[in-house]
């Protein structure tokens, strides 16, 4: 556990406030402390000893960690890293949320990962190009096995190795930064060459540790392939489809155009208002901060409803789960589907 923030990262912020309009929690409260700039002010106060670290606890939990503040920050503040450091300092001992403790237990060891994959109808083990590997994810392999199956079917050149651990994003985002980095390094050693992932959150974490050149998120990879798809039809007409960006894919890796270009080939593409804004899933956030998570997503549910879409495509399992749950609750008929599955429908 580290006691302090990286001073050079704190120094980057000049408090200009350009991040405020981009921050979903600031939009909810209008309170300075719920903004990236405000939180950095608090971190600085903790760093200099004028504020007790415990005071940061509430805001470190309220922040989604969506990193929407990063692309709009001209000073180049790495807010995501600072938040990870804050949680590493604070989310220890009694302050570690019980849910997180449970999740760590599952994904942090081989047995847990094995159990998650047990009897799951995910992609089958196979040896193809030894320098191309499909990542199966942790909870994704349990909750959405069809995603890896679709990706494997679409890219037969990619090897699938079932004996693979979790990328460690969950740990890194929830107070175990070093362990999270170690898990990413291990996965990087286990799977040689380029790792293809269907989860934007995993892609961003993995690439931050093992290198951007070694990681390709599915839409990025698919865009480099010379493959054509046809329009997906429903009741004899082309589908209307929108996209929910993955925050870390967008804000951490700068991937925004690829999934949109693919969707334009698959159907009538409709840009959902604020598609790049967080859906409130934010990794474990939807479990830890249920009420706030729902507040964040509420406008998005209304927007999707108003667009009368057939599908919302996702590029990260957390977003899938959040939108499935919330659209169902609001009785919106739009189906939520991972981009890879939709591509598979367009290549039949």
């Amino acid at each position: 556990m580290s006691e302090k923030f990286s001073q050079d990262k704190l120094d980057r912020c000049i408090s200009c406030g350009y991040c405020l309009p981009a921050c979903p929690t600031y939009q909810l409260t209008g309170a300075e402390e719920s903004s990236p700039r405000g939180r950095i002010t608090l971190m600085r106060a903790v760093q200099s000893g004028t504020l007790e670290p415990e005071n940061l606890l509430a805001e470190s939990g309220f922040c989604l960690g969506c990193r929407a503040c990063e692309p709009v920050c001209p000073a180049g503040v790495e807010y995501g890293v600072l938040l990870e450091e804050a949680r590493e300092i604070l989310w220890q001992g009694k302050n570690q949320p019980l849910i997180i403790r449970g999740l760590f237990l599952i994904v942090g060891n081989k047995l847990g990962m094995k159990l998650l994959g047990l009897l799951s109808p995910m992609a089958k083990e196979r040896k193809s190009n030894p320098e191309l590997h499909l990542m199966l994810g942790c909870f994704e392999r349990r909750l959405y096995p069809d995603v890896s199956k679709a990706a494997a079917k679409l890219a037969p050149e990619v090897s699938v190795c079932k004996e693979q651990g979790c990328c460690g994003a969950l740990h890194a985002h929830n107070g175990e930064l070093e362990k999270g980095k170690e898990m990413a390094r291990q996965l990087g050693e286990q799977l040689s060459g380029t790792i293809i992932t269907t989860a934007g959150g995993c892609a961003a974490h993995l690439s931050s540790v093992i290198g951007r050149d070694r990681v390709k998120e599915f839409s990025e990879y698919w865009s480099t392939k010379d493959s054509s798809v046809s329009k997906v039809q429903i009741n004899g007409r082309t589908i209307r489809v929108g996209l929910q960006d993955s925050c870390h894919l967008r804000n951490g890796m700068g991937v925004t155009q690829e999934p949109r270009e693919i969707l334009k080939q698959l159907g009538e593409y409709v840009e959902i208002p604020n598609a790049g804004g967080c859906c409130g899933a934010a990794g474990s956030y939807s479990l830890l901060q249920k009420r706030n998570s729902r507040k964040v997503v509420s406008q998005k549910v209304n927007d999707i409803k108003a667009l009368n879409l057939d599908y919302v495509a996702t590029v990260n399992p957390g977003c899938t789960r959040q939108l499935v749950t919330e659209l169902r609750r609001a009785k919106v008929k739009t189906k939520v589907i991972h981009l890879a599955e939709l591509v598979a429908m367009g290549t039949k």
Binding site: I14, S15, C16, G17, A31, E32, E33, G38, R39, T41, L42, A45, T50, L51, E52, N55, L56, A58, E59
Partner: peptide, 17 residues
């Protein structure tokens, strides 16, 4: 009305170094 130490700290400066 807020007077907790978190809020007070957050409003302790503006964009001026």
């Amino acid at each position: 009305v807020r007077s907790d130490s978190v809020a007070l700290s957050a409003y302790s400066h503006d964009a001026t170094p």
